[in-house]
């Protein structure tokens, strides 16, 4: 696949997972996440099965677990929530090391933690094996409305531009003695967020003008993505199907 065209979560490679059409991977990831979410929270072993299935995908895609772990850190806020829940939830309580914890809260925290982690891992796996452009064309192949694809495309492109702009503005502030660690200087940061918003808005207008000038009439031209064969679909759907079976067995063994 195209070298040099990456996003921070993309890990270039040529594995079977990388070569799968993007729309197939999106569907598989979606079904997998649904299966994880539908798994009853007390079916502890089933979550282990989900993780094993995912690990299988990582082996095929040659993604090291350490690489995944660092990228999965975006879920840290959920972890905090999960840790707090047992202390504050109501209902029957258990004693643990002298602390009184809510059973319901424990289960709820575990529920958030395990499902959140698995969901993030599935998403990171999808992103790690699929370049941005393919993700968008995959969405449009799945008949996601044109407007959503337009917005997604533009967001992908301009997120980088806006981040670079924010970095330049921060540098300009810092080089004039601004130290954002001091609370009383927060005002400057807030104002520059406002300026950033305005600049982004003005850019939006200019981009729209540039699009019109090249014949844009409201739909992105469809960029060719090959359809996937039945064989590809059935192989790719295997892990997702396995996850669904695991989730269902969770209800049965309960």
């Amino acid at each position: 696949m195209a070298a040099g065209h990456a996003h921070p979560l993309y890990r270039a490679g040529d594995s079977a997972v990388h070569r799968l059409p993007a729309h197939v991977k999106i569907v598989v990831a979606f079904v997998f996440v649904l299966a994880v979410v539908a798994t009853p929270r007390e079916a502890f072993a089933v979550f282990g099965c989900h993780l094993l299935l995912l690990a299988g995908v990582w082996v095929v895609a040659r993604i090291p677990p350490g690489w995944l772990a660092t990228r999965a850190l975006i879920e840290a806020p959920f972890v905090v929530l999960a840790v707090l829940l047992p202390f504050f939830a109501a209902g029957p309580r258990v004693e643990w090391w002298g602390m009184s914890l809510s059973v319901d809260g424990l289960l709820a925290g575990w529920n958030i933690l395990v499902k959140g982690t698995l969901g993030v891992l599935v998403s990171v796996t999808l992103a790690a094996t699929t370049p941005l452009r393919d993700l968008v064309s995959g969405l449009s192949r799945l008949r996601v409305p044109a407007m959503v694809c337009v917005i997604a495309t533009l967001m992908l492109r301009y997120l980088e531009v806006i981040v670079a702009e924010a970095r330049r503005m921060r540098l300009a502030r810092v080089s004039r003695g601004h130290d954002p660690r001091f609370v009383w200087q927060l005002g400057a940061t807030v104002r520059s967020v406002g300026a950033l918003f305005l600049r982004s808005y003005e850019r939006g207008e200019r981009v729209h003008l540039a699009m019109l000038s090249r014949g844009y009439t409201g739909t992105m031209p469809a960029f060719t993505t090959a359809p996937a064969s039945t064989a590809t679909w059935s192989v790719a759907l295997l892990p997702a199907a396995a996850a669904v079976v695991c989730a269902a067995s969770g209800y049965w063994v309960r």
Partner: peptide, 30 residues
């Protein structure tokens, strides 16, 4: 708009697709 090709002042406004190739294809495809 096909006959008049405007190159705008800031290339970042003009290049809005994720890759160079897609961007160049945008006009003719439209």
């Amino acid at each position: 708009r096909r006959r008049v090709g405007i190159v705008f002042q800031d290339p970042d406004d003009q290049l809005f697709m994720p890759t160079v190739g897609d961007d160049v294809a945008f006009g003719p495809a439209n």
